[in-house]
Simulated scan of single mutants.
Amino acid sequence: MDNIFLAAVLGLLEGLTEFIPVSSTGHLLLAGHFLGFDSPGNTFEVVIQLGAVLALISLYAAKLTGLALRARTDPAAMRSLLSLLIAFLPAVFIGLLAHDFIKTVLFDTPMLIAVMLIVGGVILLMIDRIAPPPVHFDATGLPLRKALVIGICQCVAMIPGVSRSGATIVGALMLGVEKRAAAEFSFLLSLPTMGAAVAYDLFKSRDLLDFSAMADIAVGFAVAFVSAVLVVRAVLGFVGRHGYAVFGWWRIIVGTIAVIALSAGA
């Protein structure tokens, strides 16, 4: 199969799944395994994530800039920025400690990824039913203590297949954050988290990075950017109306297919 086409497929997969609770990393790793796509030093996978990050920046730049400009004189704006920082810090701590184990062991275990997709899907279905009534409706107005708990939940997503957005959304829902606000806080938290993760991956893998297939990388990057913009714009309204059950079923179906295929030796 032509590498440019594969790059476009994987870029689309990254953009479509990065900001919904289905695990973009899990989908990319499984797709790469089954399609036989090899990227020396994981250069392709790292760079196309930047496309998704830039998509989110383009959509939230005005909001974040406004918060930063008001922070000096507006305590609420300062608290909003502080809540994101506090939620981000646990991932920094765990990520620095466990980076090599995650990348060299967990990322090379397709069956673990498939099983975590299924487990996460079941949890999403349960949480969508049992989450307490919401008491927080503004993603930029969460109490600092609850922001920290959501940040701790995010650390579970370092296991591929769990989903960073899934872990943060589940944590937020159980803390009484409304469904749309939970998704938006997850989006905002992904900016420092993904930005730092990509930068650290590039630094740690600097001797292994291979940019020889620039055409593949450029196509994947562009497709990831465009598809991520479309998903972020659509998903807030969707979860506000329909909740997260559809993503739970998606995870269970994809994970089950992957388990069957892997068990058959694929």
Rank of each mutant, 00 (worst) to 15 (best):
T17I: 12
L82D: 11
V22Q: 03
A61Y: 12
R72T: 11
S24C: 01
S23Q: 06
T25F: 05
D74I: 01
A87G: 10
A87F: 10
A76T: 07
H27R: 02
H27G: 01
A71S: 05
V47W: 02
F19C: 08
G41D: 02
A76N: 01
A76C: 10
Q49T: 09
G26P: 11
T65I: 15
L84I: 13
G51H: 12
T65C: 13
Q49K: 06
S80P: 15
G66Q: 00
L16R: 12
L69Q: 15
D74M: 01
P75K: 00
L85P: 03
H27Y: 07
I48S: 05
L54P: 02
A68E: 07
G26I: 13
G32K: 14
H33V: 14
L69P: 09
L67I: 02
R72I: 14
I48Y: 08
S39T: 06
T65M: 14
H27A: 05
R70N: 07
A87V: 09
D38G: 11
V22T: 03
L81S: 09
A77P: 10
T25R: 01
E45F: 10
L16F: 08
I20Q: 01
R70I: 14
T65A: 15
L30F: 10
V22W: 06
I20P: 01
D74E: 07
G26H: 05
L29G: 05
A61P: 06
G41S: 03
A55P: 00
Q49M: 14
L50N: 11
A77C: 02
L16D: 03
I86C: 07
L16E: 02
R72G: 13
V47T: 05
L50C: 11
S80Q: 13
N42T: 05
L28Q: 12
I86Q: 04
Q49R: 07
F19W: 13
R79N: 08
A71D: 09
F44C: 00
A76K: 06
L16Q: 04
L59M: 09
Y60V: 09
S39W: 00
R72S: 10
A61N: 09
V46I: 15
F88S: 11
F44N: 00
V22A: 08
S58K: 01
A77K: 03
A87Y: 07
L16Y: 01
L29C: 09
V53G: 13
L56C: 08
E18V: 02
T17M: 02
V47R: 00
P40H: 05
I48Q: 04
S23E: 06
I57R: 11
I20Y: 00
A77T: 03
T17E: 01
T43W: 00
M78E: 15
T25P: 02
H33K: 09
V22Y: 03
K63V: 13
I48A: 04
A68K: 04
L16T: 10
T17W: 06
P75Y: 00
S23N: 04
V53L: 15
F34Y: 07
L28K: 00
A31E: 13
L29Q: 06
E45K: 11
L84M: 12
S83Q: 03
L30I: 12
L67T: 04
G32V: 14
S39Q: 03
P40F: 12
L67H: 01
L54M: 13
H33T: 12
T17Y: 00
K63H: 11
D38A: 15
E45A: 14
N42L: 10
L56R: 11
G41H: 01
E45W: 07
